[in-house]
Design a protein around this nucleic acid. Structure first.
Lengths: 197, 197, 197, 197
DNA sequence: AATGAATGAGCGTTCATTCAT
DNA sequence: AATGAATGAACGCTCATTCAT
């Protein structure tokens, strides 16, 4: 039976796990210091290699940073329970944890600062991170529509932005979140304010 | 009661209006390039002075940047009409204009990136810019409460964050705003979603 | 008398024509950029191989450059007609064409710059290129002596240097040659200046 | 009568003689190593300053090299005696001394190598060094024309190139000069070869 | 024999900051 | 008060060379 495995790759093989180590080091620095202060010297040192090793893999600092950003883990969201409100709150709670991680917001800062010079960073972040979370939230509300709990004409996009955005706004205004922020945010975004009649 | 006559300052007086010119140049660069890429050489050149002139006034690049940020103009908000919904929308429309200005979001990125190293920047921004806008919005809703249109228990803070935050979230997700974004945002934050029954 | 049968070379044979391709690439770069700016990376790339392939054949960049210089084509000179003056002019005309080729003089510059560090380059150039042309010119004049047209005591070496050198001098002074430069140069070197009486 | 000396220059004065020291260091390296191997680090070290000090004065390595070349001393030629032949020989003897100086020919090599990338170097050399020597030689022969010793139609330019060029040619062919090279060169360039009849 | 990976050293340039007038 | 000069430290990037397959 035994098929010969496909012919060995030619040349000296790359040191195992090195790409990962480099990218992790780069991501660490990018998140901790921003693009400008991230230094290839330090990235190489932290990964235990020399600078030309970086250049063999990526053709510039910008390229390395982009590749590093690709490592950013997408969140794994709690499975939906079918209760729209509870699911939204669980999602927001997880979101809150992300933002409170060290460097959680700084990476977003880097994207904003470098948006003109390195548009690829923002693009990547949108496709990898933002899109995913929004899809999860959108799904929760779309299911509620399907179940007939929510009117078809609901402005789900606007609600999404309100919910997620409440965190950004709160961070910029206060820098920290009260324990019941998911509930309060969901409360407003889903039900609005208590107008009298 | 003898008022002391304003004693002549000794030594050569500072050139008039120079502080302003320097700070404006610094703010320009800070907004356009971020803190790290803002260069004192360039700031001095743009202001028509030399670097030690900057150091005579501020003791470091960080200090200068902080002082420059203090120049950021606070928005002037449209006067309230008494119609809460209209007033909110008008405010958000003005907010949208700010964010769409060149460098509108980049300055926020700088604050986030430098938050640890230069906490003063964020603090200042919160006090000068964020607080002001939030106060204006809060006032609109508080007036609605006073007039009895809105229940006292309304979570005004959460609603504020939803409204303002919807812009940040939308920017991060899309980078631009549809024309009716103020209405849509206000719609969700004030009324919530159209639940059945 | 038993001839040894040509023993099979052991191991993988070298790829045919590869030496040539590498040397041609090296010569191109040497002529176009000089020794210092000639990069082994680029030479390898142009030849379609990798750098260690170069090092298997030559032990250093200097060695490769020297080997490459050996590829420089010696000129083929017009056959002598027996008319010394015409033959000299024809030779100089061909010389002029060489110098006007792109990189014609730059290679000579490289030799001069690297003379101390890589004496082999200059030595090789002298033996391969300079000697050949001078021999051709010398032959023309020696034949004239043989034919009795030129006195035996003629300082042929000095005349040689005048003729060839007039080109170098003109290049350094002007960078280009008038169309009748061979005639003018031959005129002076063969006949001198028109002194009165 | 003491007039007030013109107002002091503003700012910290440049360290005395520093320009000179830097340029001399640069010229040393340029002549000894060529443009490519001349390193700003080493130039600064040799001059006892730091690299940014170089950049305050010249905006790039190319600029510094050009400025350094400007330091090259033009030769001072022996005063003409009125005897054309003797004067030519004296001039050539001095020329020979220049070329035999350490790095004498290497600088010319640098000019040739960098002619495309730094055309300013060659231009400068032509204007400063080449032109001067040629003018001196041309003057000698022009005077001979004036005195009626030499026919007006003499091709002085060609003779000039023969004389000066004989040195370049000889250097490229042999690397050294016999003691009577000035006489031999002048002999051919002024009188031509001894044709019979 | 040839490959692709890795290294150590060095380069030109820029910056925030301080010094000496 | 303002200037022009100088510094020390870094940075992104490239190169000739060697290693491991």
């Amino acid at each position: 039976m035994g098929r010969t495995p496909p012919s060995r790759r030619r040349g000296r093989p790359r040191e195992a796990g090195l790409d990962r180590r480099i990218l992790q080091a780069a991501l660490d620095q990018l998140a901790a210091l921003g693009f400008e202060r991230m230094s290839l010297e330090a990235v190489a040192a932290q990964a235990g290699v020399t600078k030309p090793t970086l250049y063999r893999r990526w053709k510039s600092k910008a390229d390395l940073a982009t590749a590093a950003l690709r490592m950013l883990q997408q969140s794994t969201f709690p499975p939906p329970t079918g209760n729209a409100r509870q699911d939204v709150i669980a999602n927001l709670r997880e979101f809150q944890a992300c933002l409170l991680r060290p460097n959680g917001m700084r990476m977003i800062g880097t994207l904003l600062v470098e948006e003109q010079r390195l548009p690829g960073l923002m693009r990547l972040f949108r496709e990898r991170i933002v899109k995913t979370r929004r899809a999860a939230l959108r799904r929760i509300l779309a299911d509620a529509v399907k179940r007939g709990e929510l009117d078809k004409r609901a402005d789900i996009e606007a609600a999404l932005n309100c919910m997620v955005g409440a965190y950004y706004a709160r961070y910029l205004a206060q820098g920290k979140f009260p324990a019941d922020w998911p509930e309060r945010t969901a409360g407003v975004a889903l039900d609005g304010l208590p107008w009298r009649q």
